[in-house]
Structure formats: C-alpha cells, structure tokens
C-alpha cells in the first residue's frame, strides 16, 4: 500500500485521470473530493466489499443438487409465464 500524507487542500492523482483532494478534516473524519472520468466508479469500501462477497458467494460451483434445483426453478418460472 502506498502511504502519502496530505494536508487539507492538497491533492493527489491516480493514473492520469483520477484526482483526490482533501477538502476538510473534522475529528477523525475527513471529507475527500474525487474527480474521475464517468466510467470510473467510486464507492465506499464497505459497499464494494458487500458486492464482492455477493459475487463470490454466487460464483457457481453448481453441483448436481444445485443443478437440479436450478432446473426446477426454471421450469417453475416457465410454467408461470404460460
């Protein structure tokens, strides 16, 4: 991990297009301004981690039991549509 120290008002840049500015510090909280291209997503870590965990949980080691359950569900959904 790269560790930098910045004061309020100072900035840093990641790559060529992501700019981080320290806006203010209050107690043990800090307000950070981020300028990045629209295609670059920025999220609080906890939000990202939650989705990462969900992806890994869903990653399909679909064994025979799950395979058969999936087919049951798909049959159920197709029948519903008829």
């Amino acid at each position: 991990m790269l560790v930098l120290s910045r004061r309020v008002g100072e900035k840093m840049v990641i790559g060529n297009e992501v700019f981080i500015e320290i806006l203010s510090v209050s107690g043990d909280g800090v307000r950070i301004g981020i300028t990045a291209p629209r295609e670059t997503s920025v999220h609080r870590f906890e939000v990202f981690a939650e989705i990462e965990a969900a992806n890994l949980a869903a990653e399909a080691v679909v064994d025979e039991l799950k395979d058969s359950a999936l087919k049951d569900l798909s049959a159920h959904l197709r029948n519903k549509n008829q």
Partner: peptide, 29 residues
C-alpha cells in the same frame, strides 16, 4: 443458486450492463 430451489436469489443491487454493439460489459453497483 441454492440447493433448495425456493431459496435461490437474484442480485438486483449490482447488475451487469452489456452493450450489444461493442460486446462490452460492466457490473454497476
């Protein structure tokens, strides 16, 4: 996917967008 078919769930909070023209995909939170 759950082994109990009634417990299978969908992630609606972070869907995948696929651009059919460019064949590119992105997962968006």
């Amino acid at each position: 996917v759950s082994s109990d078919w009634q417990k299978t769930t969908v992630n609606l909070r972070a869907p995948i967008f696929i651009d059919e023209e460019t064949k590119s995909g992105v997962q968006v939170i």
